Amino acid sequence: MEKQFNDLSESRQQQLMAFDRLLTIMDELREQCPWDRKQTMDSLRHLTIEETYELSDAIIENDSPEIKKELGDVLLHIVFYAKIGSEARLDNGFQFDIKDVLDGICDKLVSRHPHIYGDFVADSEEAVKQNWEKLKLKEGNKSVLSGVPASLPALVKAMRIQEKARGVGFDWDDKRQVWGKVEEELAEFKDNFNIETGEVLDQKEAEGEFGDLLFSLVNYSRFVDINPETALERTNKKFIRRFQYLEEASKADGKSLAEMTLDEMDEYWNEAKKLNA
């Protein structure tokens, strides 16, 4: 039985009122603002991707105020898409609104958690994941991997592919086996080069082996609880900080990067490392 508004706690009432305020503002903007009236799902798509990456950056930086702000931007986009969906009846008869979106995710969460809302027993995170993939297949997915978006960045996609395969038991038993695979792929990659001259013997083959090496490293990262996307992005940010220190410090000393030797640049780079930049 659904709860009545007055039966809810004060904090839940405030949450629902805040959400109602956002829905009301969205209705008003869609009706009155020339920019908002013009938007379509296609025009919003690239903006949504940008907002998602900004949220990701805030999470990596552990910046709580920024996380709150970016979550608001992402939530606005969800409400915006639902508003556009509710108007689709005027064009092709296909329609949904924010209630349909919320009901859909609630129904899915209940059906995907039979260990909470049913009689299935799952006493570990791994058991939950494996049953999740089995349920998705029962719901009509033709492949365990069909839930991996084709447009995902390659590194994230590799991780998700491996997680999906693990969900049905297709995985290594021991991380030592996985590390052995990393070493095997590294040796096969090296075989495509003349070590003395640095010449690539077969460019296409080398590319394939490099891909295999990266895939195996992503695989190993799962076994040691490292998110490869997060790890690489932290390294990207670290490199940017140190390089910008190199630029600023050398400029302050009246030097030009274009005229400096690599050894001179390394002095500033090592300074940045000592400063933990």
Rank of each mutant, 00 (worst) to 15 (best):
R12F: 08
F19G: 01
D191T: 01
F19V: 04
E205V: 01
K181D: 07
V144I: 07
L135I: 13
R112D: 12
L145N: 05
A231Q: 09
V168K: 12
T230C: 06
I49R: 08
E139W: 06
L71C: 08
Y81S: 05
L109D: 13
K255F: 05
D174M: 07
K273M: 03
E126Y: 09
Y245L: 11
A277T: 15
R112M: 14
F210S: 02
Q203L: 13
G198K: 01
T261R: 06
F120K: 15
P34M: 04
L16A: 04
K136E: 10
T230L: 10
K238D: 10
H46L: 06
R222Y: 01
K273H: 12
P65V: 05
L257F: 10
W35P: 01
E205W: 00
S9R: 05
T197K: 02
S146W: 08
E199V: 10
R166P: 00
Y53N: 11
L275F: 11
D7A: 15
K108M: 14
G85W: 01
G85C: 10
R166Q: 08
D7R: 08
T261I: 03
W132V: 00
H115E: 12
K237P: 02
Y220N: 04
M159W: 02
E133T: 01
L155M: 02
G147T: 14
G208F: 00
M260I: 06
S56F: 09
K3L: 10
Y117I: 05
D253C: 07
T197L: 01
E2S: 15
C33A: 09
P114S: 08
I116F: 13
S250W: 01
K69C: 11
D107K: 14
E207G: 06
M17N: 15
Y245K: 06
L152M: 06
R160L: 07
G140Q: 03
Y117L: 13
E188W: 05
I67K: 02
E183Y: 13
D36S: 14
F96E: 10
K237Y: 05
E196C: 08
A150Y: 05
N276I: 04
Q13S: 10
K164Q: 03
E184C: 08
E61K: 14
T230I: 09
F193Q: 01
D202V: 04
L102Q: 08
D191N: 11
F5G: 08
L109E: 14
L262P: 00
W35S: 12
S151P: 00
K237A: 13
T230R: 13
D191Y: 11
C33L: 09
R242F: 04
D36G: 02
F19Y: 14
S43K: 09
L135G: 04
E50S: 12
N276A: 13
I78T: 04
G254T: 07
L71G: 00
Y220C: 03
D97S: 10
L22I: 14
K238T: 10
N92E: 11
